[in-house]
Amino acid sequence: MRIIKLNMVVVLLLVLISACNNEIVQEPIMINSSDTLYMPLKDLEFEAKGDQWEAILNSFTQPIPVKIRYGKNGFHLYPKKDHGIVEGPGRLCLQHGDNKFYYKVYLKNILPPKIEEVDYRSSKIINLDSSNAQQRIFLAVDEWRNIVDAAEGAELFEEEILQLNKKVGVYRAQGHLALSSYYIEPGSCVSIPLKAKYIDIKKVYRIIAGPLKDRYDNLIADGTVVKFICDNGKFTNLMEEISLNGFASIEITAEEVNEYSIFAKVDDAKSLSITLQP
């Protein structure tokens, strides 16, 4: 009786130990084996036993979700999503319980992706006081953020310095893209023509400074401060006005005028003085 009991214990122990042992699984064989896989995956077949497989496909940047369909002799891998990827070296890991098998692959996109040409301009704002040169960095990227050759035989990155024209305006680096606009802006004011007009109806003198221009004959920027300064010997009158379309003006009531000498300034540029008679 004792022996029977002992035998039973031994048998039970053996069963337990054998249950702890890992099942030995054979490495699945890739049918039509290739170093390069094209994404999205099209029916990647493996010969393997069992139906408890898990697959993890790593692109160069991230794991790509795939699903498994089992067939007679193994299984097929399909993409979960029909997307392209960042091309580059990848890893496929097939897992069955604790058994893991790795396949080094190179992943490429199968479909011709949309290519976006990017034209980075620096500076976007060209102030003619400094320079009319503009840097252009040009490259092409596909929709999956792979850098591609912009043109046959071209470098991946192209760079050039453009000499822009000196005409103030808003221009586009890429004709179809408002976002690519760059701006040529006027330089400092160099000439300040000043004239005065008596407006009878209002009984005022209108003093007009303009057209205010930079050295390339562009009208200066809207909003520029034009200082009209006049002195009647007793008081110094400081009138700051803002230019619009290259002109700034002030009005002085005629009865206030008692032989005024008046001039206009934009930063350090100064007009000639004119004298208003009462």
Partner: peptide, 19 residues
């Protein structure tokens, strides 16, 4: 944003690290 959107296209939840 473009890089993030590209990643999001292949996103199916966070996984336990293997490699």
């Amino acid at each position: 944003e473009s890089w993030f959107k590209q990643l999001a296209a292949s996103y199916d939840g966070v996984i336990e690290p293997v490699i």
